[in-house]
């Protein structure tokens, strides 16, 4: 991935959410940690233009998040913290197909793309199910599937293992590791980040540590005390 933050800051309702910073992300696996309210979600939402910075520019794989929002969103998938809220149509397969509409495929091509991604994530049996019938782990995978079907280059996941039982957590963790796409994970589940090339630690609207997973996690433990 190639995400460049150039002198970016975010203020919301008079409160500084992110202090000015510049940063370049090029690794394939990036983790983001920090306390609640430290600016993690705002940071990652800027990568696909859901939040626009007050100052500075954000470029994702060569496209400006403000000027070229459509290009950016086509390349960046986002799995939200409450994945149930991002499944917007009742049937899982319809919801997955929805993200393909802008590609203007034929019915057969759409169905193939949907069943390919479902098979990849091992959720082919969920395609005919309704969103409200699924368990927490299934919802997480279905939301990820509806993002992957649009063939993004980067996938951002906000607390993907939150509220999952151990079996589902391990399954989601394995899935994340096996994805060929570039991944950015925001998480409180520090084990999930083992082996990640780069982890950013956010604290009170600042990036206070930036490096390999083990180093940054140690600093986080120290910071929280």
């Amino acid at each position: 991935m190639q995400v460049v933050f150039n002198d970016v800051s975010v203020t919301y309702a008079g409160r500084v959410v992110l202090q000015p910073f510049s940063l370049r992300l090029t690794e394939r696996r990036i983790g983001i940690i920090g306390l609640n309210g430290s600016g993690k979600s705002t940071f990652s939402k800027m990568i696909n233009g859901l939040v626009l910075p007050d100052t500075g520019t954000v470029t994702t794989n060569g496209f400006d998040a403000r000027q070229q929002a459509h290009e950016v969103r086509a390349r960046v998938g986002y799995v939200f913290q409450h994945p149930a809220n991002q499944i917007v149509l009742p049937l899982i397969k319809d919801d997955m197909a929805l993200g393909l509409k802008r590609l203007r495929l034929t019915r057969q091509e759409e169905e193939r793309a949907v069943s390919d991604v479902a098979a990849r994530l091992g959720i082919s049996h969920l395609l005919e199910r309704r969103a409200h019938e699924l368990s927490g782990g299934e919802v997480q995978l279905a939301a990820l599937a509806s993002v992957l079907v649009g063939a993004p280059e980067i996938v951002i996941m906000d607390e993907p293992t939150n509220q999952l039982d151990l079996r589902n957590r391990n399954m989601v963790s394995r899935t994340i590791r096996s994805l060929p796409e570039d991944i950015i994970v925001i998480t409180h589940d520090l084990e999930l980040l083992s082996g990640f090339e780069r982890v950013l630690l956010f604290h009170e609207g600042r990036i206070v540590e930036d490096g390999p997973a083990e180093v940054v996690i140690a600093r986080y433990q120290e910071l929280v005390g």
Partner: peptide
Amino acid sequence: DIADAIDARGIRTNSHPQKRAE
């Protein structure tokens, strides 16, 4: 959350990004 997801997935072609932080 739902609106963010719709925008993030590019489901609607005519929507504009909204400046908002949480």
